[in-house]
Design a protein around this nucleic acid. Sequence first.
DNA 1: ATTCGCACCTGAGTGC
DNA 2: TGCACTCAGGTGCGAA
Length: 303
Amino acid sequence: MPELPEVEVVRAGLQPAVTDAVVTGVEIFDERSLRRHVPAAESFTAQLSGRRILAAVRRGKFLWLPLDSGRALVIHLGMSGQVLLRTPGAAADRMLRIRLTLDHPTHGELWVNFVDQRIFGSMAVDSLVATTDGLPGGYWGTGETDAAWQRRLPSQVAHIARDPIDASFSSSTFLAVLARKNTGIKRALLDQNVISGIGNIYADEALFAARIHYEQPAASLSRAKATALLAAVRAILHRALAEGGTSFDAQYVNVNGQSGYFAHSLEAYGRQGAPCSRCGTLIVREQFMNRGSHFCPRCQRLR
DNA sequence: ATTCGCACCTGAGTGC
DNA sequence: TGCACTCAGGTGCGAA
């Protein structure tokens, strides 16, 4: 469940279930799902057992659950990760890699199943470091308590730029970075050090909305055009979030296993051979970064 | 210091 | 039915 809207759907679903819960069990079915875990002195299991979860936070496509130990459980879904909440005793999910058992003060026992087909995602316990700007590390929904974890973020997320729906996102910083980028605009949008949360689907959708060719040099965009692109990115992410994210199949689901509806609203991604909604020209798919780029050859010309 | 290609993986779908 | 091949929403590493 990869891009920002889908990850936020997972975060929002986790928050009420895991906040204030204590980890009472850890089962690792595939060690490869711990690829981002750096075993410091203690193992993944030892660092989680008995710890209380304080919140569910997200920056871009990274999720983390701050713990009462001062560290955090980092979750990245990769290309195919899912976090599913299950009642203990439920039938095992296919491709289950890690399971946590939580005990919540009011909801009781709960399984958190980390399912991942391709194993590009992972769970890890990581230290928290202070944000360089002193602002919140990510988005955690409501609740202003000024707790210690709020202005911190996992060390492995520190290099990730803020995402465009983060209240602390700086448009002027983004525009300045973009103006210095010596690469195509789509590469820049996908670079999580420049702006986070955007992946292949929403990059294509935003570029379609802003009528920009994916290989247009980033630095060649006028300030007005770049500003319009950022507005398009925000609009699309918000609309996708409101629809519960994009699902083509059962792979991209919320914590209850339900799909989102934004796939019906896609204008470019996956629509190769279908007419552009604006001009009727057939949408084209081109090979790009070992994937595809979808665009309207008439509305989105290289300039 | 940047930018770019590729490795990391499994499973579903297609065509022969 | 089986096999070879293509495709998939991400990230990080090393090489240029």
